[in-house]
């Protein structure tokens, strides 16, 4: 059994740690580094509760070895809020009742945030496709879609007017 010294940047903070070969990224984040916002759900890359950002892309951290993430920038739910204020996606989930039990919520928000990075003005089909890899057993998804739309509007409104006009009102 080999062990590996790795470096992870989590929400901008660099951590050095030693992991077994078989340590999954989600366990390194939760058990070694204390980022317990990322949940473990199905353990089979189906439910998306463990979704984090790996160098900017949404990935399922239960299906990735920690050693594979050596040197990567990881984003978790703990990194969404800035200066004590909710990020637009968090505000959307609160305002639109995008959660009930909340177990899927961190992964759902990270998947949605990845979408809004790529596509600031998604339609409903695009939102549903983006969260296809995240299961919610409470909400029936409609309020989650509404929450993502809320965040997209919020982010569109805070973009500068010049930019909004220049890129055609936020359309791709």
């Amino acid at each position: 059994m080999t062990e590996h010294d790795i470096e992870l940047s989590v929400n901008g903070t660099t951590h050095e740690l030693t992991v077994e070969s078989r340590t999954l990224l989600v366990h390194a984040l939760r058990d070694e580094l204390g980022y317990t916002g990322t949940n473990v759900g199905c353990e089979s890359s189906t439910c998306g509760a463990c979704t984090v950002h790996l160098d900017g892309d949404a990935v399922k951290s239960c299906t990735l070895l920690a050693v594979q993430a050596d040197g990567a920038e990881i984003g978790t739910v703990e990194g969404l809020a800035e200066d004590g204020s909710y990020a637009p996606i968090q505000e959307g989930f609160q305002k639109e009742h995008g959660l009930q039990c909340g177990y899927c919520t961190p992964g759902m928000m990270l998947a949605a945030d990845d979408l809004l990075e790529r596509n600031p003005d998604p339609d409903e089909d695009e939102i549903r496709e983006a969260i296809e890899g995240n299961l919610c057993r409470c909400t029936g998804y409609q309020n989650i879609v509404n929450a993502v739309e809320f965040a997209a509007n919020e982010m569109g409104e805070t973009a500068s007017p010049e930019m909004t006009a220049a890129d055609g009102g936020g359309d791709d």
Partner: peptide
């Protein structure tokens, strides 16, 4: 294939 997260890996 799969979903967004799967296609990213």
């Amino acid at each position: 294939v799969g979903d967004v997260q799967v296609r990213n890996r």
